[in-house]
Computed example of a mutant assay.
Amino acid sequence: MIVIRVMGGLGNQMQQYALYEKFKALGKETRLDTSWFDNASMQENVLARRSLELRFFDNLTYEACTPQEREALLGKEGFFNKLERKLFPSKNKHFYESEMFHPEIFKLDNVYLEGHWACEKYYHDIMPLLQSKIIFPKTDNIQNNMLKNKMNSENSVSIHIRRGDYLDPENAAMFGGICTDSYYKSAEGYIRNRVTNPHFYLFSDDPAYLREHYKGEEYTVVDWNHGADSFYDMELMSCCKHNVCANSTFSFWGARLNRTEKKIVIRPAKHKNSQQAEPERMHELWENWVIIDEEGRIV
């Protein structure tokens, strides 16, 4: 049995679910462990407490692991049990993500997988299946419904600019300085050179910043989905014909769920500052994505 821990925000949850579907497609008995959301101690170091948002999607179903199934792989808690697993690695069935891509996980069985699994290569081949299963619940929000129709009728482009928690000292060292002004200027130029009369829809947790820096009839700031409705921003991103992503799994999934043929999707050269930018490797792992670094260079 393969058990995958679900944790983090919506984008990360979708990636863990996507990996679940990939293992299912390979014929593996697979479960999702959602206990992270029920245990406050597991979120002690998380700046914003998270909830299980996968439950909001209409067609998204999965098999959850039981406490007994989790214990069968992780063993019982306690000092001596942890020591035994450390001294006898063969008894340790807990696999932690430590690289951008771990192809070896698909050869494993009876293992507990913990990580975010952001790499496109994990589930690129089953993206049509994921698009058919990740269906946003219907909304009565008139602005959202009108905007989806408008996006469909024009050369719409989403731009996601994440600020908010990325400006906090705890996060700035890890995530700051990646999606720079040069990155966004280059991405916008790339779109303008290939798309006729693009209209840019701007998404951010700092709409005041957007209004100050993006002025003109070709820009629309989307700023009305808040709280429990925030995930509708991801749906609106997916309704655009092209996507410019932040170093954020939220906008990665807005782009992934975009069903437009020959769409342009742009992402930064790295997700966090602890990674080395390796263009050749990135193009292998993120097939058909345009990759731009913090200097605005297309790599």
Rank of each mutant, 00 (worst) to 15 (best):
Val46Asn: 03
Gln15Leu: 00
Ser182Ala: 15
Met234Tyr: 00
Tyr184Gly: 02
Ile126Leu: 09
Tyr190Trp: 14
Thr34Asn: 10
Lys93Phe: 15
Gly177Arg: 05
Ser186Gln: 15
Leu113Pro: 09
Asp125Ile: 06
Lys150Met: 06
Lys93Asp: 12
Ile178His: 14
Arg211Phe: 04
His102Lys: 05
Thr260Ser: 08
Ser35Pro: 02
Thr196Ile: 11
Asn145Tyr: 01
Asn247Ile: 05
Tyr122His: 12
Tyr20Trp: 04
Thr220Pro: 08
Asp206Pro: 13
Lys241Ile: 01
Ser204Cys: 06
Phe95Asp: 09
Ile4Met: 08
Gln43Pro: 04
Lys28Val: 10
Asn39Thr: 10
Gln143Leu: 12
Asn288Cys: 11
Tyr190Gly: 03
Met151Gly: 03
Tyr214Ile: 04
Gly296Trp: 08
Phe88Thr: 13
Asn288Met: 07
Lys86Glu: 06
Ala173Asn: 10
Arg70Pro: 02
Tyr123Gly: 02
Ile2Glu: 05
Asp58Pro: 00
Glu53Met: 14
Gly115Phe: 10
Ser248Lys: 13
Asn59Val: 02
Gln43Val: 04
Leu83Val: 13
Ser51Ile: 14
Asp181Tyr: 05
Asp233Arg: 14
Lys138Ala: 15
Asp38Ile: 09
Lys28Asp: 02
Leu83Ser: 10
Asp229Ile: 00
Glu77Leu: 12
Glu99Ile: 02
Asn141Ala: 03
Ala118Trp: 13
Ser186Ala: 15
Ile161Asn: 09
Ser274Ile: 02
Asn141Cys: 09
Asn110Lys: 11
Gly216Lys: 03
Met100Leu: 15
Lys272Leu: 10
Tyr219Thr: 08
Ile191Ala: 11
Phe252Thr: 07
Tyr96Asn: 12
Glu53Thr: 01
Val46Asp: 05
Gly164Arg: 09
Leu74Ser: 08
Phe136Glu: 09
Gly189Pro: 05
Glu114Leu: 01
Ser238Leu: 07
Ala173Phe: 02
Ala25Ile: 00
Val157Cys: 00
Arg281Gly: 07
His102Asp: 13
Ser51Phe: 00
Lys148Phe: 02
Thr139Ser: 15
Pro169Trp: 03
Lys24Ile: 09
Thr34Val: 13
Val221Gln: 09
Leu257Ile: 00
Asp233Phe: 07
His124Gly: 00
Asp125Ala: 14
Lys263Gly: 09
Ala269His: 03
Leu83Met: 14
Tyr190Asn: 04
Tyr183Asn: 10
Lys76Thr: 15
Met151Leu: 14
Glu77Met: 13
Val46Ile: 14
Asn152Lys: 12
Asn247Leu: 05
Asp229Val: 02
Asn110Ile: 06
Pro67His: 07
Lys86Asp: 01
Lys272Ser: 10
Phe56Arg: 14
Glu280Arg: 13
Val111Leu: 03
Gln276Ser: 12
